[in-house]
C-alpha cells in the first residue's frame, strides 16, 4: 500500500501575542514593542514524524492543548508548518468543526450545496446525491428551513452526511462525532467503518477512547507537541490512561 500521508519532523510555532495595547501604551513603550523578543513563542508541535498508509484509520489522542487540532490543520493545509514537511497524496475531506461553512440564514439544502462544492464536488454531483445526503441525515422535514433553527445534533447530522457523500479519500475528523445522540453515533460509526473498509484513509482526533479503540488500526498519543507513544490502539490507550489517570 502507498502512503497517503507523510509527515516529517514537523514543528509549529505560534507567536503568543499579548492583547493589543492601547495607543497610549504603545507610544510610551515604543522601544519595547520594536524589540522582537516582546512576543514570546509557543511551540504547538515539536518534531512530529509519522506516516499513514492508504486505507488506514489513525487515531490521535492526548490532553487538551497537546497539539491534536494543530496537527489536523497542518495536514489540511489551512496553516503552514514552521519547519518540516508534510506530503499528502489524497484528496482531503475535513470534518473539523461542526458545520464549518454553514451559514445560519441559509436552508439545509442550500448549505448542502455550498458545502458539497467546498468539499470537492461540482454542483451537478451534489444535486445527484442530494437525496442520499438528506436521507442519511434523517432530518428531511427540516431540510428547507434555515439552519439557525437546527439543534447542534441536527447540525452534526447534516455536516457528517455531506462529508461522507463527497467521495472522501482522506477524512480528517476532529472530535465532533460525540455530539450526536446514541443512534446517530452508532450510525456514523458504522458509516465510518464502512468507508474505512472501502479504503478511505481516516485520521480521527478524539477524547472518546472507546470509539478510538473501536475504529482505529493505529493510535498516536500526542503529549505537549511530541509523540509520546504510537502503535496498537489497545496498548496506547491503556498506557495513556495509566499515565493520565
Amino acid at each position: 500500500m502507498n502512503d497517503a500521508l507523510e509527515i516529517e519532523d514537523v514543528w509549529k510555532k505560534f507567536p503568543m501575542r499579548r492583547d493589543r495595547p492601547g495607543f497610549k501604551e504603545f507610544l510610551l513603550n515604543l522601544p519595547k514593542f520594536v524589540n522582537r523578543n516582546y512576543n514570546s513563542n509557543f511551540w504547538a508541535l515539536k518534531g512530529v514524524s509519522f506516516k499513514v498508509k492508504q486505507g488506514e484509520c489513525l487515531g490521535i489522542i492526548g490532553k487538551n492543548g497537546a497539539g491534536k487540532s494543530t496537527l489536523l490543520s497542518l495536514i489540511l493545509g489551512t496553516i503552514y508548518p514552521t519547519k518540516g514537511e508534510i506530503k499528502v497524496s489524497q484528496k482531503i475531506t475535513p470534518l473539523l468543526e461542526l458545520g464549518a461553512g454553514f451559514h445560519p440564514d441559509l436552508t439545509g439544502r442550500e448549505n448542502i450545496i455550498i458545502n458539497g462544492v467546498l468539499l470537492g464536488l461540482t454542483k451537478d454531483e451534489v444535486m445527484e446525491r442530494m437525496e442520499d445526503i438528506v436521507a442519511f441525515s434523517e432530518i428531511k422535514e427540516f431540510i428547507d428551513m434555515p439552519v439557525r433553527t437546527y439543534s447542534s445534533g441536527m447540525y452534526l447530522r447534516l455536516a457528517f452526511s455531506v462529508a461522507i457523500n463527497t467521495d472522501p479519500e482522506l477524512l480528517l475528523i476532529d472530535e465532533i462525532l460525540s455530539v450526536g445522540d446514541e443512534s446517530f453515533q452508532k450510525k456514523s460509526k458504522d458509516a465510518l467503518i464502512g468507508l474505512i473498509k472501502e479504503g478511505v484513509t481516516t485520521i480521527l482526533a478524539s477524547h472518546n477512547l472507546a470509539a478510538i479503540k473501536d475504529v482505529c488500526n493505529r493510535v498516536i498519543w500526542l503529549d505537549k507537541g511530541e509523540i509520546r507513544a504510537e502503535g496498537e490502539p489497545e496498548k496506547v490507550v491503556e498506557e495513556y490512561l495509566r499515565c493520565s489517570g
Binding site: S73, T78, I92, P94, L96, E97, A100, G101, L118, L119
Partner: peptide
C-alpha cells in the same frame, strides 16, 4: 473565520 480555518478552498 470558520470557513478559512476549517475548510481548504
Amino acid at each position: 473565520v470558520s470557513l478559512i480555518k476549517k475548510i481548504r478552498f
